[in-house]
Simulated scan of single mutants.
Amino acid sequence: MWTHKAWPGRFLPQSLPAKERLRAYAGWCNAVEGNTTFYATPSRATVETWAEQTGPGFRFVVKVPKAVTHERRFVGVETEMRAFLDAIEPLGERAVLWTQLPGSFGPSDVEVLGRFLRRLPADRQRAVEVRHPEFFTDARATSLLEGTLAAADAEWVPFDTTVFFQSPPTSEAEQDAWAKKPRLPRRTRALTGRPIVRYLGRDSVEETVAGWQPWVAVAAEWVREGRTPTVFLHTPDNDEAPALARRFHDEVRALASGLEPLPEPEPVEPATLF
């Protein structure tokens, strides 16, 4: 997302028109998850406004529609994929094609995934998120998936929820996430030069920051190796997300001096009560 009910007056200007919200968000962060594309393919005109509001270094990780991954499971999806690829074309090489798979998609399905990945445009980066436990706990399943992804020059996107599930929920937002988010082991192995990580912390800033320390070290090592990682930081309520993203980036920069700083956001007038 690039807007949230808790952000106006803090991270974004108050009453900002919808067509300007991404531009304001891009002052805080240099990447965004395109989660809405999972539910509906946007119009090409809408995506053109996304491209216009962001600079050439801004990165979009856009999710392949659920009709392709969850409903059809890659069978007979030519029409849906043509529409999706045409819609996001204005983003060019800034768009990463993110294929999120359901928990039921297991090792026996990897072959069809490989065929799908190889048919994607050669000039688009590919990324895959799996949720079946065997990919994380069975060495043969891990090796099979890694080999398939490597053959398609695709990255494995880990969704690290280990910190979130260390203690029971203490808020309504945490209770909702507790029921919906996957419980999977932490994975820190990168397959390409542009790794992607999703990290879910807690509503507590202190717990979130303490929990991400392993990722600070991993991301800094990737930068020193010449990789360009993208890390998405979530909390159940996401109220502090932009500030947390900048804090994480600064912690990585302290360990990897070659990492460029994030852009400086425009000053925001504080929200008023009347």
Rank of each mutant, 00 (worst) to 15 (best):
T162C: 14
L149H: 00
R131K: 04
D138Q: 09
G106I: 02
T37S: 11
V163F: 01
G193Q: 12
R227C: 06
E174W: 01
H4I: 00
G211D: 08
F38N: 06
K63F: 01
L101Y: 04
R94L: 12
C29V: 14
W50N: 05
F84P: 00
W222K: 13
F84M: 07
G92R: 12
D160G: 01
E129H: 03
R187W: 15
A87P: 12
F105S: 03
V157E: 00
F232M: 13
A152H: 00
S167W: 11
E174D: 06
G201C: 08
K19Y: 06
F11Q: 06
A217D: 12
T49M: 13
V77L: 08
G193A: 15
E20D: 13
K19W: 10
V75S: 13
S204Y: 08
E174N: 00
A45V: 07
P236Y: 02
N238V: 00
A245F: 13
A87G: 04
L200D: 02
V77Q: 08
A141Q: 03
V157Y: 05
E146W: 03
C29E: 14
D237F: 01
F274Q: 14
E134N: 14
R140A: 12
A210R: 11
A245Y: 12
G76F: 10
R94H: 12
K181Q: 13
V218S: 09
Q166R: 14
F159E: 06
R72K: 15
F74L: 05
R118G: 02
V231P: 09
P121V: 02
S257Y: 05
D237K: 02
V47Q: 11
T230G: 04
T99K: 06
A190T: 02
T162L: 05
W215N: 10
E206L: 12
D109F: 06
P17H: 08
V62S: 08
T79D: 15
D250R: 15
G9C: 09
F84L: 05
Q213P: 05
G27A: 15
R23P: 11
E20I: 07
A254M: 11
L145K: 02
A141N: 06
D176C: 01
A24E: 15
A219H: 10
P182W: 04
P8V: 00
P214T: 03
P42C: 01
W178C: 05
S171I: 03
Q53W: 11
R246Q: 07
H249A: 04
K63H: 03
A150C: 08
K5N: 01
V218P: 05
A45R: 14
R253M: 13
S167Q: 15
S143R: 13
E78A: 12
T272L: 14
T69L: 10
D176Y: 11
A67Q: 15
K180C: 11
R187P: 03
P121T: 02
G193I: 11
G34P: 09
T142H: 07
K5H: 13
R124Q: 09
L12C: 02
W50M: 10
S143F: 05
F159Y: 12
R140F: 04
T235L: 11
K180G: 07
T69H: 04
G106W: 04
L191Y: 01
F74I: 08
Y199P: 07
P8C: 08
A241R: 02
V75L: 15
E174L: 08
E80R: 12
R189P: 00
F11N: 06
P169F: 10
V205L: 13
